[in-house]
Amino acid sequence: MSDPLAVTLGPLTLNNPILTASGTFGYGLEFTDFVDLAAIGGLCTKGLSLKPHAGNAPPRICETPAGMLNAIGLQNVGVEAFVSEKLPKLRACGATVIANVWGDLEDDYVTVVRALEGADGIAAVELNISCPNVRQGGMLFGNSPPLTRALVAKVRAATRRPLIVKLSPNAPDLVESARAAREAGADILSLVNTFVGMAIAPETARPRISFGTGGLSGPAIRPLAVRMVYQVAKALPGVPLMGIGGIAELSDVLEFLAAGATAIQVGTANFKDPGVSGRLVKELTDYCAARKTTVAALVGRAHRGGGRVGGAAGAEG
């Protein structure tokens, strides 16, 4: 039998389905005391732009029930410094690197993706069209299917690498966004990014985050994210999905696989438990061994076998 943890998402094959989410895993190198980077399925870098980007003024984060709000504002070292300073070290660790990229304008995305083309050791590109914490670009692309379609088509033409498009849960119609990204050439869809939220300090009546609003993440969003993965898997059968949102335990991983994700990304949980991704790989290995099953067999189980799932997602019987 082939490796029970290995998964194939279109053109991308991974040793296992446990990845770490962009912006919650630094450039990976911050975690080498806690995780063997070669042992996880892959890591998504902090969102990279063409030029180094300073990000938003503090305060940038605040805790909320079972999660947090953030408006980091995509602070990053820029694609050039990433390729020359971070990537060689990641390669030396044996990491499977997914470059997460963003831009203000369509052409910015294309330029960053082109700048990565020459670099060795990048397994895939993930387009962030869903960041709620910048004034331009980001989520604006993800919230409009025509803009999504145009952007993804341009980037598709600029790279031969596996292309992941990261969807916004704030889009008016997630399934339409997913369809637009897929039809324009996305190999894989990752979902979800953070939900736009807000917290106000009652003492001052001012937002707790200087940007005003922030992106909500952590276990608080998990049921929303599971529902979205389920919906997209149902509407677009056969499109490989990476599930993201509040994953911290093995049971959460199994939940997303059942909903239709072939791989998952661990986000905010990395902050409170930096070893969590490595631990999940071990626990999933043990789980599959004990049940003599494979991860591939666990994908999409919620859609099979006549169970009724009602509501907006529709019923199957």
Binding site: G23, T24, F25, G26, E30, F31, K46, G55, P58, R60, I61, N70, I72, Q75, N270, F271, P274
Partner: peptide
């Protein structure tokens, strides 16, 4: 430990 960039 430098991963979230929240503490600037």
């Amino acid at each position: 430990f430098g991963a979230c960039l929240g503490c600037v």
